[in-house]
Amino acid sequence: MAGNICLALALGSVASAALACEEAPVSGGKCFTLRGRVSLYNGTPSMRIWPIGSKRLLGVVPAEHEDAPANIKGVVAFDRSAVADLEVCPVAKAKQGEMQMVCIRSARDVKVQSP
């Protein structure tokens, strides 16, 4: 019984995270677009975005089930990255020296990169 409750809570949080990105969460600010490389890393969150030309990384949340469009989730792996025009929504305010957490609302012009 307890396992069923945990599973229901986990699935509910995944669904609410996807919904939150669709509705543009306001806790971190307005959604914005960027050209970036989406890669998987060891650590949490696993999926991260490097905005091309910057020295920062954005973490994609929720960490256990990254909220990303199918055209990104379907191609990104530990041995493959994707470069795309991304619309991301911050779920927390940016703090200098810390990775900002975002969800990916949409991805266009996706190009797969292998090492």
Rank of each mutant, 00 (worst) to 15 (best):
S39A: 14
S16H: 13
A63T: 09
M101V: 01
S54Y: 12
S114G: 14
A10G: 10
I5K: 14
S81Q: 11
V61K: 04
P25S: 09
E23S: 07
F78I: 00
V26F: 00
A77R: 01
D85Q: 09
Q100D: 06
R37T: 09
F32V: 04
V61N: 06
G53T: 06
I104G: 05
V83A: 05
K95S: 09
R105T: 07
N71R: 02
G59M: 13
G3H: 14
P115H: 06
G59H: 12
H65W: 13
G97P: 13
S54H: 11
I104S: 10
G28F: 05
A24D: 13
Y41K: 11
S54K: 12
A63V: 07
K111M: 07
R80V: 02
M99L: 09
M47F: 02
V110H: 04
L11R: 12
R37S: 08
R108V: 04
V38I: 13
R105V: 12
I52C: 10
A68G: 04
G29M: 02
A20S: 13
P45A: 08
R56I: 15
E87V: 10
N71D: 05
A70S: 03
F78V: 00
R48S: 06
E98Q: 13
Q96D: 14
I72T: 01
A20G: 03
E22N: 11
G97L: 09
V110W: 06
A24L: 07
D109F: 07
V38S: 06
P69Q: 08
A17H: 09
I72H: 04
A84Y: 05
I52Y: 11
L9F: 11
F32C: 01
G43H: 03
K30M: 11
D85R: 07
F78G: 00
S13T: 14
S16P: 08
I72N: 04
K55A: 15
G97F: 08
H65Q: 09
G12K: 12
M47Y: 02
L7P: 00
D79F: 05
R48V: 13
K93Q: 05
G43R: 01
V76P: 01
V60M: 13
S46F: 04
L9C: 10
A18W: 07
A70C: 00
E64D: 15
G43V: 07
A24H: 03
G36N: 11
A17Y: 08
A10C: 12
V26Y: 00
L11H: 07
E87A: 06
G28C: 04
